[in-house]
Deep mutational scan, measured.
Amino acid sequence: DEEIEKWIETLLKRNISLRVNGKDLEIGSEEFKEWVEKFIKEV
């Protein structure tokens, strides 16, 4: 979905790490990609 890709790009540009389930996810890491894929499937 384009919306999500733009959102991810924005996050990448800002180099933010997300806190997911109490863990810091490094943007661009494998864990982050897995989380994004799960997130996309749920939406």
Rank of each mutant, 00 (worst) to 15 (best):
R14N: 11
I4P: 04
G22E: 05
D1M: 13
W35D: 00
K23R: 11
N15T: 12
F39E: 01
N21S: 05
V36A: 07
K6H: 09
E2Y: 13
E2I: 10
I27H: 04
N21V: 04
I27A: 06
E26K: 10
K23F: 09
E2H: 10
V20A: 04
I27M: 05
I27W: 07
L25D: 02
E5S: 09
S17N: 04
S29E: 02
E3S: 12
E37S: 14
E37T: 14
K33N: 10
N21T: 02
E42M: 15
R19W: 06
K23S: 05
N15V: 15
W35M: 03
L25E: 01
E3C: 15
S29R: 03
K23T: 05
E26A: 10
T10Y: 14
F32A: 01
I27D: 02
I27C: 09
E5L: 15
L18E: 00
G28W: 09
E34G: 09
L11F: 13
E42T: 11
E5M: 15
E30N: 08
E30F: 11
F39L: 10
S17C: 15
L11D: 00
G22W: 11
E30G: 06
E34H: 13
L12I: 08
R19S: 05
I8T: 01
L12R: 08
D24I: 14
I40W: 12
W7Y: 04
L12F: 07
E31G: 07
E34V: 13
L18C: 13
E9R: 11
I4R: 04
K33F: 14
E37M: 15
K13N: 09
K33G: 02
I40Y: 09
E34L: 15
E9W: 14
K33Y: 13
E42K: 12
T10Q: 11
F39G: 00
K38F: 11
I40F: 11
L25Y: 04
I40E: 01
E2A: 12
L25T: 02
W35H: 01
G22A: 02
V20P: 02
D24P: 13
T10E: 13
K33C: 15
K13W: 11
G22M: 08
E34Q: 13
E42H: 11
L11I: 07
E34P: 02
D24H: 08
K23C: 14
T10W: 15
I8L: 12
V43P: 04
R14Y: 13
T10C: 15
W35Q: 01
R14F: 14
D24E: 12
E30T: 10
R14L: 14
R14S: 08
E9N: 06
I40T: 03
E42F: 15
K38S: 06
D1S: 11
K23L: 07
E3D: 12
E3Y: 14
D1T: 12
E31M: 12
D1L: 14
L18G: 00
I16T: 07
V43N: 06
N15W: 15
F39T: 03
L18M: 05
D1Q: 11
W35S: 00
I8A: 03
